[in-house]
Design a protein around this nucleic acid. Structure first.
Lengths: 202, 202
DNA sequence: GTCTATAGACGGATAGAC
DNA sequence: GTCTATCCGTCTATAGAC
């Protein structure tokens, strides 16, 4: 076992790590539902089963806690998308694009308060938090640039790639505003968006 | 519409009406930039040139002020879109759809803090505020349902219409997250989205 | 690791003078 | 119409006991 792996395991087991994970989980839900400003550390602590002051054993500040929640939010979707693509190398570029959309949307809607908290809270979070998230956000953008470039072909201009990325990500992320798990169907919505993407000759 | 809102809107002249408009204008900008929770009435009043307490001569509460800002936000885009369509009756259903997109997006990006404040703040605003906005929001949805139904044709199913509406509105509203007036071009982005909409035979 | 207790700042809202 | 003054609640964060 490498030192790094040992250290990682040390950080992920034990009482402190459990409490930390629980805090993050509840924080993600509260941020998603109420926003960053309206997430009270008193309420958060109460839901986790501790007092507000105790949170500072695990996180140095509210901003750091929020940063961690939002960072995990990007990393979760990114990992889900890249894993799915990794296991589907034989698909056509178009099918890979549709697969990426499916995984992004499913993660957003059914699995992860972290990702939706990121999307909803980003515009209003302190500038320092946004600065911390710059790198992970760029990395995820790059994942999509690659998927879309493969679909559009080698003659695609950078603006064409960016615009399609904005359109698709916007169409998907907007689902946070209307999607109702009891009435709506992820597959049906993906199919509707996919219907707008022409089958290309490459 | 409440009786109060109707009565106050009738007063469009005089000192009170001017101050009221100024308050709404600054409030819209602050809500867009910082969100509802982080808009302080003290800061708002300072920017308008008054003291916090004076705001209560014009609005009964912060919630009522926010409701008015957001209601105006929908009405402004709706009016811009319907006016444009009114003056372009001869266009094809597809061209009318693209025109509606152009006007919606331009209003959002260059004219109205009110509309962008609505879009950004809606998820986190108190439930009572959301309830007040239900009617105007539904009305604007209906405008788009009609435009899209005309484009898709008489055989379009309700879900097909809704899904295309969500996709297009999502693609446009997401521009609040990335659009930079100095680098990006509204027309170019509209063209990119429009390229995804097949020319139909009707 | 979590607690109690509290500092210190700021929030929305109201009353009454002018 | 706007101001001053203020009430009362809540917030993040810290210090020190256990």
């Amino acid at each position: 076992m490498t030192g790094t792996a040992k250290a990682t395991r040390a950080r992920t087991k034990g009482k402190a790590a459990d409490a930390r994970r629980e805090i993050l989980k509840v924080a993600a839900r509260m941020m998603r539902e109420n926003g960053y400003a309206d997430m009270s550390l008193r309420d958060l602590a109460a839901e986790v089963g501790m007092k507000a002051g105790s949170l500072y054993y695990h996180f140095p500040s509210k901003e750091d806690l929020a940063t961690e929640v939002m960072r995990l939010g990007v990393e979760m979707v990114e990992e889900a998308v890249t894993d799915a693509l990794e296991q589907s190398r034989k698909l056509s570029p178009r099918d890979r694009l549709v697969l990426a959309m499916r995984v992004h949307l499913k993660t957003l809607l059914s699995e992860s308060d972290f990702s939706s908290a990121h999307i909803r809270c980003y515009p209003f979070v302190p500038e320092t938090v946004r600065a911390e998230l710059k790198t992970v956000r760029r990395a995820y953008d790059q994942v999509w640039n690659n998927i879309i470039a493969a679909y559009l072909g080698t003659d695609a201009e950078p603006q064409e790639i960016r615009h399609l990325r904005y359109t698709l990500i916007g169409a998907m992320n907007w689902s946070l505003e209307w999607f109702n798990a009891e009435k709506d169907d992820v597959e049906a919505y993906i199919a509707s968006i996919a219907a707008l993407l022409p089958v290309r000759k490459n």
